[in-house]
Amino acid sequence: MLRKSQKFASLLVLLAAVGLATSSIASGHGDEKHDNSRVPLPKHSITKGDKCVEPTEVMRKSHMEFILHHRDKTVHQGIRTKQHSLKNCVNCHADPETKSVLGKDGFCESCHTYAAVSIDCFSCHTDKANASKQTMRPIDAIGQKVIAITGGEK
């Protein structure tokens, strides 16, 4: 149950966040025209899927809005749809090498560094795709043999 004051407050925070983000994106667009800008443009590789859950332009501008809205619904009401969930963002956008959205060329960090907006998500949320599957023990000798025989297929 979201109280009225909370709704109003989230609206305020949202407005501030959106204001900040749009201004930084706007300035980002300005920079793109100058190839010799001192701040290097972020680069990251997206390998999965052909398109995001919303059009790219919408996501650039409003991704934080989607995540914030979804976060409240998930935490307080147990609504766990995939479309705007942070877990889904990370699973899709994690770098295939590092399996993370952070790091110099990580999807989230590279752009946020460029726009000079700090991210507060990953002090609590994992930045790794499919984290629960990755935090298993390192593969032991028996496991190596199994992988050798099966070629890593299940």
Binding site: K87, V90, N91, S123, C124, H125, T126, K128, N130, A131, S132, T135
Partner: peptide, 15 residues
């Protein structure tokens, strides 16, 4: 500080 959280159980310093 915590690392290695599960994706369904976010946890972090200061809360």
């Amino acid at each position: 500080d915590i690392t290695g959280q599960k994706e369904y159980a976010p946890r972090g310093k200061g809360t």
